[in-house]
Amino acid sequence: MNSSDFKYLNVNGRLLDLSTPQVMGILNVTPDSFYAGSRMQTREDITRRAQQILDEGASVIDIGAYSSRPNAEHISAEEEMNRLRVGLEILNRNHPDAVISVDTFRADVAEQCVKEYGVAIINDISAGEMDNRMFETVARLGVPYIMMHMQGTPQSMQKEAHYDNLLKDVFMYFARKVRQLRDLGAKDIVLDPGFGFSKTLAHNYELMAHLEEFSIFELPLLVGVSRKSMIYRLLGTTPQEALNGTTVLDTVALMKGADILRVHDVRQAVEAIKIVQEIKKGT
């Protein structure tokens, strides 16, 4: 397979070109996201944030209604969908051509979002582990599927950060999941190593150090480190002070082959991509 063969995603019949890395802007319609600056609950907040994401150069808006921070409150599928409806109605009305991703681990929620609101991508933190109908659902819907590596659930994941061999375990996990998805007929699969999910500080940096090795899968790679604890715990700061560290790690990830950056701060990620692309022209 040529390395350029997997650099596209089919989003509602259009091709999202990943030969240049793309930015996914985070739109949280939750009251308890770990980064207070990303919590959007009123219609005015959601409207303003969506416009900002697109104005600053993101090609995908990733909307989520279930907080996946450590020890987050578990909410019902009904509550998750009710929150998503508010955001998706605003997005459909104001930005009908925008590429929308929904951050959910629930197959029913994924299906409703795709069928009722034309959502183009499903982003699942559990890679089907928290809903055994997710793989069949995304394969049937024919939408690109981002699957993340995590052990346990958001409520238990930090107690499960144990590995015999981190890289081998993560690679074997993805190899098994990709095969299952392919057997079901799923086409566009994106891998997310799951920075900050069931990983210690050392695990996160080990993953980043070996990120280029994920190219063995010949699948697009999403990296989401935006304002996470791997930055602010290392530096002794807070999520509010973690933008510079985020940009540093995003730049490293781009140099190591990341295709999509999932971020709170879109403009800075877009700038990092431009700079890294310019550097790569000279190699």
Rank of each mutant, 00 (worst) to 15 (best):
S68M: 12
L166M: 00
Q151N: 13
N132I: 06
G64T: 00
E116V: 07
M147W: 05
I146K: 04
E136C: 12
I63W: 00
R49A: 06
T104A: 06
A77Q: 13
H95N: 02
A127Y: 01
A50Q: 01
V119A: 08
E136T: 11
E73S: 14
T153A: 00
G128H: 09
M134H: 07
Q155D: 06
G118D: 10
Q158G: 05
R49G: 11
A120T: 00
T42P: 04
C113K: 03
S68N: 14
M148N: 02
E116G: 07
N71I: 12
R106F: 14
R106D: 10
Q41E: 15
Q51L: 15
I125W: 11
C113S: 12
I61M: 11
D108I: 08
N123Y: 11
V143W: 13
R140E: 09
N82E: 15
D62S: 03
G118N: 07
L54G: 00
M130G: 06
D45A: 08
E73P: 12
P96Q: 03
T42W: 01
N92K: 10
Q151L: 15
D62K: 02
E89L: 01
R106T: 08
M147R: 05
N165M: 11
G152S: 02
I121T: 02
R48L: 01
F105I: 08
D97R: 15
V143D: 07
M134L: 15
D108K: 12
E78H: 09
H74N: 15
N94G: 07
S67H: 09
G128C: 03
V109C: 01
R48S: 12
R43T: 09
V143G: 01
I90E: 01
K115T: 13
T104L: 03
A50W: 07
G152Q: 11
S156K: 10
H95M: 05
V143Y: 14
F105K: 08
G128Q: 01
R69M: 09
M81A: 11
S126T: 04
E129S: 15
I125P: 00
V86E: 11
Q52K: 14
